[in-house]
Simulated assay, not measured.
Amino acid sequence: MDEREQVVSLLGRAGVLAAIRWAYRSAYGEVWRDFNPQGGHDQGWVGITAHKLLIDRLDRVFQAERFAVQPGESHVGRDVLADGIADSDFQSMPVIEPSTVVHADLNNSPGWMLGDWRWLMASFEYGRIDHIRWPQRSETKGMVARQPSAGGDDGLFSLADLPDLPPLESLEDAERLLRRTLVLAHAMDLETGETQLFLGRSRWNFDKADPWVWRHDLSVPPPSTSVLPVDPVPDDTDVPGAQRHLPRAIGEA
């Protein structure tokens, strides 16, 4: 397996891809329901609102930050997880064991981590996933994009081209995690409500070339006023040997 296959397989088996897709569907479903361009809402409103709602939904489904299990308790109360979201969203929320994924920010950029892999969020213009310019983004996103990668032959800094690079296991924890930091890129079409979601290894494209070493499409059907239940099968069926994980919805007995 190459890096992409390893990551997608790992996150798929753990149910994390299904949880991310649920968070994305729930967040953008609410954005689209509330979006009112005649009332003054614009791309800026969508971007800020989606960002905040995605943080909430990812923390909620992974039971992190304000949804973390309290000392002396074994789980988070159903009333806490359901508070503030649509009932259909709560009923379709996948069950992920607490501490499976932890909140792991990088320089105040919201992030989450499973094992040795972390992902940060980044918005982009709908339909232009391959036109992101990382040199024009934040310093943190640029630092992530400049990391060497074993994910493909066309990356700016591939491990094969850097034979003197210190091995991953010799690095301090923060440096090792930085080298294994991915980007969860999200977007919405303001005209149709259609959305896009990708998880991938960013590439420092100062040359205006491909912004990705690799990326994996996690998009789901566009949100509507009646949010559909999440597809229980993670989007990892194209990975050889990947196991299908069927997360139980929290609302089920």
Rank of each mutant, 00 (worst) to 15 (best):
W32E: 02
R137N: 05
V213M: 09
Q63E: 09
Q6F: 09
L168Q: 07
S138I: 09
A104E: 08
D235S: 06
W204I: 00
G84K: 06
R203T: 05
Q147W: 06
R128Q: 14
P247R: 14
H245P: 00
L182H: 09
R21L: 03
D231E: 13
A19Y: 12
V7K: 08
L178P: 01
G200T: 05
D130P: 00
D153M: 12
V76K: 02
G39I: 06
A86G: 09
W212Q: 09
P223Q: 04
M188N: 04
R248A: 11
A122L: 09
T192I: 15
R13Q: 14
F35H: 08
I48T: 14
M1D: 05
M93W: 07
A104Q: 10
D238W: 11
T195K: 05
E139V: 12
S88R: 08
A253N: 13
V230A: 03
V220Q: 04
G155T: 02
V46C: 08
G127A: 07
D2L: 10
E3R: 02
R248K: 14
L10F: 12
H131K: 11
V61G: 12
L162T: 12
R179I: 02
L218N: 03
I96M: 04
H186I: 13
G241R: 11
L168K: 05
L178E: 03
E191Q: 15
F90S: 00
D130A: 12
T225F: 14
K52W: 06
Y28D: 01
P98I: 01
E97N: 03
E97S: 05
I132D: 00
R133T: 11
L54E: 02
Q70V: 06
D231N: 14
D2E: 10
L162A: 10
A68C: 02
S109P: 00
R244V: 10
F67W: 07
G84Q: 06
D79W: 12
L218I: 05
A50K: 01
P232R: 04
S74G: 00
S219T: 10
D238V: 00
G152M: 04
W214L: 06
T181M: 08
D238M: 03
G40R: 12
L177D: 07
V213P: 08
P94G: 01
R21D: 04
A14M: 11
Q243F: 10
T140F: 02
D83K: 14
W214K: 10
G241A: 07
H245V: 03
P163V: 12
G40T: 09
